[in-house]
Write a protein that binds this DNA or RNA. Structure first.
Lengths: 141, 141
DNA sequence: GGTAATTCGGACAATTTAGTCTGATATGGG
DNA sequence: CCCATATCAGACTAAATTGTCCGAATTACC
């Protein structure tokens, strides 16, 4: 339903949101806390950097930080860079054209589900997640 | 959201449902009508055969047919053999445990969407699809 | 019985996704 | 200045998914 890379991006962003503050978080620390392979995480963070979701400090006391407040970052934004662009709203039955005017037999039902998913991702912020998460007070170790 | 193989299985099943009758449909004909690579389709049909969704006749006038009436076959049944078993309801944030009693911050919203998807697949039959599909009277070529 | 047309079924190849490794670059502190 | 410790970035490897190929088994028709 959601690729592993997208899941990793969400985990990383939630982790950063939890530790959000004036300082930066080291990527190795995030890897430990989230269980994401360290080198792969670094790739994902770098991509999120290019998209303007996170920023980084280099050098000895470097690390990553969210650019905006967690309450201003939606899950959709975090996931977007890792979605295969083309296939966004393709027909469940693989028809080349499948629209409201020219729908396949599953169009209506499938559209509802796709809509609900997008709606959820676009209207849930990182803050919403950490607020609702009982893990927020536990240590990652 | 749904793998290509699962999409192919649905297309193939819908195709068989459209042509449902006493006889069988040749796999090469289905490949032409659906646009699925012929050899790959044959693999998928074979798998659907093992699952008891379709049956086949071998030899010169052989082919495939739905075992049950299209109105008795749900989309969930068609897709099921091609789902990666393990990951059925995994947490959006990748937590090892994520249940109603011990939910992650995204649990509730994500559960709704997953539920709606499963509900749709389980309560939509092949007949529902071909009844609603304007393509049902067109020739596949 | 032979031949053509079909499914059966696995081996193989290509593509995409996931993950690893290595070196370059930057920064703070002795 | 030099070294330890970060990020940065791309090349490389591994695994999963998708797609191809080919030979064997089966059946209808001549």
């Amino acid at each position: 339903m959601v690729s592993k890379t997208e899941e990793y991006a969400l985990r990383a962003a939630v982790c950063l949101a939890r530790l959000h503050g004036p300082g930066v978080v080291r990527s190795a620390e995030m890897a430990r806390a989230t269980g994401i392979p360290a080198n792969y995480l670094s790739k994902i963070l770098h991509q999120l950097g290019r998209e303007g979701i996170v920023s980084s400090e280099r050098g000895r006391s470097g690390g990553f930080r969210l650019v905006r407040d967690p309450a201003d970052v939606t899950l959709a934004e975090v996931v977007a860079p890792f979605e295969p662009q083309v296939e966004r709203n393709r027909c469940l039955l693989g028809r080349p054209e499948c629209s409201d005017g020219n729908p396949c037999g599953a169009h209506l039902g499938w559209k509802k589900i796709r809509g609900a998913t997008i709606d959820f991702l676009e209207n849930t912020t990182l803050y919403d997640v950490i607020r609702a998460d009982p893990d927020r007070n536990r240590d990652g170790s």
